[in-house]
């Protein structure tokens, strides 16, 4: 464990909590892509199946459980409790265009052709594109509430810190997880455009992020 990975995991947890609390307190999921949250729940489900087969550490186990619980709780807020505020009209990204290539690639490019390993690989590839419905929804509506942008900022920060974590682990341990790194770089690139808008608009105190 290193400071980059630990702070990355903390940023990830903060992002998920920001989103959950925003929906819970505002009793609305307006502007939130339910599809992205479904994809994230699927990412955690397919990645954390080893909860029952491989014990890494207390931290690892606790964080996996917390991420799973919060992911499903957020999805249930969007699709059940506050479903009247769910804007399915704007959340129109065709997720099948993500799931099919990601599933195909996870069968082609993996470390070993076993069910657990293919599901892990699927979750890695899926995570890199899971935010796209949310980013698409923001471009469609042309705006995002500032709390939603803070959620995206912390998600992007978690991914950026993971890149630093991999540099550190390669330098310190000779650790290099090619599938995770390539997929992680692609995922972080998707946030670059958002980061630009975030730093030039939201942090200028304009409150809401409106796209040009």
């Amino acid at each position: 464990m290193n400071i980059f990975r630990l702070s990355g995991d903390v940023c990830h947890l903060v992002a998920i909590i920001i989103l959950f609390l925003k929906i819970w307190r505002s009793k609305s999921c307006a502007g939130i892509s339910g599809k992205s949250q479904l994809l994230f729940a699927l990412v955690f489900t397919t990645r954390y199946l080893d909860l029952f087969t491989a014990f890494i550490s207390i931290y690892n186990t606790v964080m996996k459980v917390v991420f799973l619980v919060l992911a499903y709780a957020t999805v249930s807020l969007i699709y059940f409790r506050f479903r009247k505020s769910y804007d399915s009209e704007s959340d129109s990204f065709r997720v099948e265009f993500l799931l099919v290539p990601v599933a195909g690639l996870s069968f082609l490019e993996n470390y070993s052709f076993t069910p657990l390993e293919i599901l892990w690989t699927f979750s890695i590839y899926l995570e890199s594109v899971a935010i796209l419905p949310q980013l698409f929804m923001i471009t469609k509506t042309g705006e995002a509430e500032s709390i939603t942008t803070h959620y995206l900022f912390f998600l992007g920060l978690y991914r950026t810190l993971y890149l630093a974590n991999w540099v550190w682990r390669y330098h310190e341990e000779g650790f290099f997880d090619q599938i995770a790194v390539v997929s992680g770089v692609v995922q972080t690139i998707f946030y670059c455009d958002f980061f630009y808008l975030y730093f030039t608009r939201v942090l200028r105190g304009s409150g809401k992020m409106t796209l040009p």
Partner: peptide, 10 residues
């Protein structure tokens, strides 16, 4: 190289 079975990252 990585031990593929040991995915110790979240």
């Amino acid at each position: 190289s990585i031990d593929p079975a040991r995915h110790d990252e979240l």
